[in-house]
Design a protein around this nucleic acid. Sequence first.
DNA 1: AATTATTTATCGGATTTCCGATAGATTTAA
DNA 2: TTAAATCTATCGGAAATCCGATAAATAATT
Lengths: 97, 97
Amino acid sequence: MKGFLSFLVLWLISKKNMTGAEITEELEQRRGHRPSPGTIYPVLKYLTNKELLKVDENKKYSLTKKGEEELDMSLNQFFDTFCDVDEMRRHCHCHRK
Amino acid sequence: MKGFLSFLVLWLISKKNMTGAEITEELEQRRGHRPSPGTIYPVLKYLTNKELLKVDENKKYSLTKKGEEELDMSLNQFFDTFCDVDEMRRHCHCHRK
DNA sequence: AATTATTTATCGGATTTCCGATAGATTTAA
DNA sequence: TTAAATCTATCGGAAATCCGATAAATAATT
């Protein structure tokens, strides 16, 4: 529950506060398949319990201060791992049909 | 076994043919922790069985034609999911201490 | 050649991750 | 105000993921 999906959810919510349904929709757009309700709601609950997300009266999730810090750390980790992301993109684009 | 680790291994080997030990080393550099032998060798076996990798007499792994195609597809998927990777990086860097 | 160190490989199991089914809650439409 | 549709939430279980322990194979050192 603390894998790539959590990371992606934090990132998406950092860009725009969203409800569970909106997050589901956005994930489907990006990944090409829709996460099941049994996937996304437990993730949101987990992140809320960890106080990385908070939710308002309209069920819109937003990052807490702690969530922003966690996101920053995860982004750093991400770019450590994918330090050559520009090269990845070039490789990707030059092979595009 | 077909998750992010496989993707990363394919990418690393596409840049440079490596042995299991060298891949382990490179992953440790990037991620900050060393994958256990019980993790990395099954992944290499899995990718070899799927004919995405081949291995020479010195145990150096390299991509097969099929492996290159798989990598291309995975890279496309990656950049679909992280379509705003530049924004991610900016966000990341501007928060760096 | 014998010993030691390193690398490769397998195995069983612990944990994580994710899903489909189900149900309750909320919203929308009739 | 019902009825229908959508959203939210939980549950149990299936599958994926990863590890540590162990052992076999290979390489390096003495």
